[in-house]
């Protein structure tokens, strides 16, 4: 089939504003078929708005959205993309099975209801009324509904919010078991560990833009490093010059202070002290959370961030 050659998801220059707020601000993202991608960012980063546009629930102000080489509407109607939304979306007075049977009736060639319910780990509670199901069970039901059309692309918007640790693990096990067949999965999350544990690739978003994009190992690498920061008086080195220093992985400016992300802080520190007029030098280690915060807040003050792309 030709569509194998189309990217699963292709977002170009996506912009979406709500009043004065730019929720999504020039976002580009290409996801290839079969990738499992975490869309990682703090609340308000524009994740849900991006997902809404991917599903055709919202229309971008600028930019284009393509799903499997077609429009989101077409992809939805053909059951080639499906989504697990954050909350709601279920009728509380229907049973688990009735809900699945109803949604299956809107699908051209649905997978058998019993099979999907089993996949989602809902055996034994098929006849339970949705309103009596726990948050985790309701979320697994949403997942089961998303599986009915056997979609090529599955979107999950903060799928485990509000679940406890075991509920989260069960949910991801169900997703994993089903994704083995090469399904593309894109999930939004603000849990770093979740992105780390379940994604092949992490796309970090902040203020409606992609601020880092790489394998989980790459992002972890950034996270495990240190930051050498200093203030330069007089002629400050340019971003390019700083990026060329040994061991520098990312250059960030915050006001007059320059932050250099590195895994070789000792070497870099000597160079900074020895060869530049830097003052107020600080060397700090960067935990996972700090790395996340650094990367996602980099755009906040309108500072310039330079980095090598993956």
């Amino acid at each position: 089939m030709n569509h194998i050659t189309s990217p699963a998801v292709e977002l170009r220059g996506l912009v979406k504003s709500f009043g004065a707020v730019r929720a999504v601000d020039g976002l580009d993202l290409v996801v290839q078929p079969g990738e499992v991608v975490a869309f990682l960012g703090p609340n308000g980063a524009g994740k849900t708005t991006t997902i809404d546009m991917l599903l055709g629930l919202a229309r971008p102000d600028q930019g284009t959205v393509r799903v499997l080489g077609t429009s989101p509407d077409e992809a939805i109607a053909d059951g080639r993309i499906a989504a697990v939304l954050q909350t709601g979306g279920l009728l509380r007075d229907l049973t688990v099975r009735e809900t699945a049977e109803l949604v299956a009736s809107f699908v051209e060639h649905p997978r058998p209801v019993a099979e999907v319910l089993a996949r989602a780990g809902l055996n034994g509670i098929e006849n339970r009324v949705v309103g009596m199901c726990s948050g985790g069970e309701q979320q697994r039901l949403r997942f089961a509904l998303a599986l009915l059309p056997a979609p090529d692309v599955l979107l999950l918007d903060e799928p485990t919010t509000g679940m406890d640790v075991s509920g989260r693990r069960e949910f991801w096990n169900a997703i994993r078991a089903d994704a083995a067949g090469g399904r593309t999965v894109v999930f939004a999350t603000h849990y770093l560990e979740e992105a780390d544990a379940y994604a092949d690739r992490i796309v970090l978003v902040s203020r409606g833009r992609v601020v880092a994009d790489g394998t989980a190992a790459h992002i972890r690498g950034i996270a495990s490093g240190r930051v050498v920061s200093a203030v330069f008086d007089g002629r400050a080195p340019s971003g390019v010059e700083l990026a060329a220093l040994p061991g520098v992985e990312l250059v960030e400016r915050r006001g007059e202070r320059v932050l250099l992300h590195t895994h070789a802080s000792d070497v870099l520190g000597r160079i900074i002290f020895g060869t530049t007029g830097a003052r107020d030098v600080e060397i700090t280690s960067l935990g996972l959370e700090e790395a996340f915060l650094t990367l996602t807040s980099a755009g906040a003050a309108g500072d310039e961030t330079m980095r090598s792309t993956r």
Partner: peptide, 16 residues
């Protein structure tokens, strides 16, 4: 009620 429960949004993810 169905709008409040997000059901209409769920339906928009189907071919209905």
């Amino acid at each position: 009620v169905e709008r409040a429960q997000g059901w209409s949004r769920q339906l928009r993810l189907t071919s209905l």
